[in-house]
Amino acid sequence: MADTVPPGRYSGKRDIRTDAVNYAIELGAIEKTFAGHQVLKKVSLRVKQGEVCSIIGPSGAGKSTLLRCVNLLEQPDGGNMVVAGQYLAAGRSHPRRELLQLRRNVGMVFQSFNLFPHLTVLENIVLPQRRVLKLSAEEARERGAELLKRVGLAEKADAYPAKISGGQQQRVAIARALALEPKVMLFDEPTSALDPELAQEVLAVMKEVAASGMTMLVVTHEMGFARTIGDHLVVMEDGAIIEQGVPEEVMTNPSEERTRKFLSAVNR
């Protein structure tokens, strides 16, 4: 469990896979400490290509920090990882090119949506395509409109984020992330700030994204989503993975007492 990813399985440049199993994300003994408090204690995790992996656990367990380490919004202090075929070791600052390459492959959706408030819904989706993919304005708008249609918000293209509901904002945020055609999507409690009704419309979009074959790592409190859409369930507590497996099995028959306690608390 606590092993780093063996470098031997990568070719000379260490960013091309040479073994048979296709993992979209491999985390090896990731460590992170904030002000003397160890938030992640050598966490290792593998997510297969096209798999939906849900991470649950009490707040303060380090779920969000782990997710943020995957696209290096947080710099891990120890360990290494392979994300979408790119090898990254902790404990050194990453060159700009490496960071941008990683983030092009990894989309992220935040709890607080984080749309650009000064841009319209469509402009939110157009901007990264223009600047990152270097698409023409016309092409970016066309693709943006298509993505808005996909998340059911074609008619909101010209609205400003403040004028639409939280659920709609989150669907726009998903469309914005998808616009870069990432290989992996990270969701950091995407429905926690939403009323149940609005959460459902976001979950419906996530379900559709999952069905399209996207590899997804989802920190969530939505047990229904983790159970029905998720392929793999990870339970974290106190900076470590305490249990993982097939969602149905973990949920109905947890092997750890702490998992049982957590599940009974959220299902109450």
């Binding site: 983030r103 092009r104 650009f116 408030p117 990264p128 600047r131 914005r176």
Partner: peptide, 27 residues
């Protein structure tokens, strides 16, 4: 400036210069 939108811009693989120019300064 809303720090979440800045973080989102970084997560979208925008360069620091672009984040400043298109997200931080306009807001």
């Amino acid at each position: 400036v809303n720090p979440g939108s800045v973080e989102a811009a970084h997560a979208l693989a925008m360069t620091s210069g672009d984040v400043l120019r298109f997200v931080v300064i306009p807001q």
